[in-house]
């Protein structure tokens, strides 16, 4: 089940063309239709409400400033969505340490035990556990697993290789799994102690 983001709404060609010509009424239609969905997208990627608002505002400035660069290749909503993702990654990476391509090699991509079980226990708060991830890891996880971006596209967004995205995603999953296993273990101990 996925949230209806509003990006599925398609505008008439007239609205897009008028916006390209600088028509503010068309800007308003685009803004009102996509603003909330853009905020949700930026929030999913960053996990930070204030940052998501900054990203969305800056993205819409860019969208209206560069709207003539939209050449009709692919959907307009896809173009808007990509700008939001780009802006999110730009702001996220601005002040944080990034993995280098060389560091990608450190992580073992050949492991085979990540999905032996369905370790994502519904009783444990996944949103809280996700806080263990770095902002980059969260962004890669959300872009790949929720937004449907490919490793190649994510690598491009981060100005990195495809293997960077693969490595960060695997590492994010390993961290989530370890946290779930640890919390589960502690919960079992707690309930046994309570019973005894």
């Amino acid at each position: 089940m996925r949230e209806n983001t509003g990006f599925t709404v398609v505008f008439d060609e007239d609205v897009i063309q008028s916006a390209i010509c600088g028509d503010h009424a068309s800007f308003e239609k685009i803004y009102n239709q996509y603003y909330r969905s853009s905020l949700s997208l930026a929030f999913r990627i960053t996990g930070n409400a204030a940052l998501a608002q900054d990203i969305t505002q800056e993205s819409f400035f860019n969208i209206f400033k560069n709207i003539q660069k939209y050449k009709g290749e692919g959907s307009f909503s896809g173009w808007v969505r990509r700008i939001i993702c780009n802006q999110s990654i730009t702001l996220l990476t601005k002040n944080s340490k990034m993995l280098t391509d060389q560091d990608d090699l450190i992580f073992n991509l050949e492991s085979k035990d990540l999905f032996e079980t369905d370790w994502c226990d519904a009783k444990i708060d996944l949103v809280k556990v996700m806080k263990i991830l770095s902002q980059e890891s969260r962004a890669v996880l959300v872009l790949h697993e929720v937004e449907g971006f490919t490793h190649k596209e994510i690598g491009k967004l981060f100005n990195k290789s495809e293997s960077f995205s693969k490595s960060v995603l695997s590492r994010a999953y390993v961290l989530l799994k370890d946290s779930f296993v640890a919390i589960d273990y502690l919960n079992i101990n707690k309930s046994i102690q309570e019973k005894s």
């Binding site: 991509l109 492991s111 085979k112 999905f115 490919t150 490793h151 693969k166 695997s170």
Partner: peptide
């Protein structure tokens, strides 16, 4: 068998 990375994509 497939590794974790292959199962992810």
């Amino acid at each position: 068998h497939l590794n974790d990375s292959q199962l992810l994509a």
